[in-house]
Design a protein around this nucleic acid. Structure first.
Lengths: 94, 94
DNA sequence: ACTATTCATCGTAAATATACGATATATATT
DNA sequence: AATATATATCGTATATTTACGATGAATAGT
C-alpha cells in the first residue's frame, strides 16, 4: 500500500518533525519513554524554567506525541505510543 | 546494543530533525527519492525561487541527507541513502 | 575573450521559535 | 475561606528561520 503524498500530508509531517526538532523536547520524550511523569519532575530533571518546560510539553502534546492526564492539581504526562509508532511508520518511505 | 544517549547525540538528532522539518525540504527529498536531480529541475517543480531552493538544498546537504555532485556548471543532487537509513534507525528507540 | 547557463551566496524584511519572569487558574489542604 | 501546590498562559526580549531579489563564481559554448 503506497499512500499518495498530499500537500496536507507533507505539511503535517513537517509539523511533527518540527515538534521533535529540539534537544529539550527529545530529552522529555526520552524521560517519558520509561515512565509517566508530572511536569514538575521534568522541571527538576532539565535545566529549564517551569514555564519553558510547560511550553515544550505543549508543543509535544499539540503534535500528538504525548498525552497529559490531569490528577488533581498535577498533570501526568506519558508518551503516546500509537502516535509515535505511526509517525515512525510514515517516515519509513524515505 | 543500546547506545547511551549523550548530550551531543541529542543535539545532533535535533539538528537532523530540524533539517527535515520543512514542507519544501520534505518535497525535495520526495523528489530525490526517485531520481537524481539538478537544482534547476527542483526549482521547476517547486513554487519557490532558485535562491530559496538552493538554501533548502544546503540545509539538507549540511545535515547529510543529500549529496551534490558537480558536473560542469550543474550540480546533481541525490539522496544519501546511508545517512537516511541511519537517521531512521536512530529514531527507532523512541 | 565574450556570453550564457547554472548554482551559491549576500543582504534583508518578515515570520517564527525560544526562554523566562510574572501572573492566572485550578485543585487540595488546613 | 485562606493558603499552598502544580501547571498553564501572558508578555516580551532575543535568536533563528524563511523567502526572495541581487549579485558573485564557475564552467560551457561561440
Amino acid at each position: 500500500m503506497k499512500a499518495k503524498k498530499t500537500q496536507a500530508n507533507t505539511d503535517d509531517m513537517a509539523l511533527k518533525l518540527k515538534a521533535l526538532a529540539h534537544p529539550a523536547r527529545l530529552e522529555i520524550l526520552e524521560i517519558l519513554k520509561n515512565k509517566c511523569c508530572i511536569c514538575g519532575e521534568i522541571v527538576d530533571i532539565l535545566p529549564l524554567a517551569q514555564a519553558t518546560v510547560s511550553q515544550h510539553l505543549k508543543v509535544l502534546k499539540d503534535a500528538g506525541f504525548i498525552i497529559g492526564e490531569t490528577e488533581g492539581t498535577k498533570v501526568c504526562y506519558m508518551l503516546n505510543r500509537i502516535a509515535m509508532d505511526r509517525f515512525k511508520e510514515s517516515l519509513s518511505s524515505f
